[in-house]
Amino acid sequence: MNYNETQLIAIKDFLYKIADDQLIIGHRNSEWTGLGPLVEEDIAFSSIAQDKIGQAQHIYEILHSLGEADADTIAFTRSAADFKSCHLVEYPIGEYDFSLMRNFLFNHAEKIRFEMLADTSLEQLGKLARKYRGEIKYHTMHADTWVKQLGRANEESHARMQTALNETFNLALGIFEESEYAGELKKMGIFEGEVILQQKWIEAITPILEAATLVIPDKNTWQPVYGGRKGYHTEYLEPMLVEMGEVFRLDPKAEW
């Protein structure tokens, strides 16, 4: 399909946002390697992280086919202001409750996003979305199981998970920061929009949190943390990117 300039900008913005989220959360989750609360969780977090980073790479490859730099250059040399990730994924791993709750909220949004993208008019993306459904199903299954277990196991774990939910919820709402190109994307049949995604997300997470005896913060208190999609980031992103690119940037022309 041939796109005009505005359409192309809209598409790229959309793809960057998705891929940057995946890369950053994948990178964060990989920081658990060797540090998990159980070796089994260490392994699970790594699998999930590998999937996310692999997905990011494939979406960057679509961007490359649309005229952007190659995937490695995109991921390993941009500075924070060029990233479109939401703040939720940028925060350090913190403790396991925080990381797990972040995964839970993020994975559900992502799962629904890819479901919505299964029949997008952007065929390359649709193909990936259909392919990823299998992988992401396990990511949400993993998070659901743990959220339910820890939400109900004992007083301590319940309190921790409720606190983690309170801490991450407004950040998670930031996933759905609407793009200025939303209308364009809808018109082209690429994506229906963040508002619908957010509604579906609430519907998906509510029963699981209920089963976990956890309470979603009152709607009147919701304060979505926006800015990431426009290049305004937490203080944590830039150092993370510096670390990520440390070796690659020694000589971006070299083959590693």
Binding site: E31, Q57, D72, M240, E246
Partner: peptide
């Protein structure tokens, strides 16, 4: 892992 150069090596 957090510093591996490029997707192939990182993964």
């Amino acid at each position: 892992i957090t510093r591996a150069p490029g997707f192939r090596r990182k993964l």
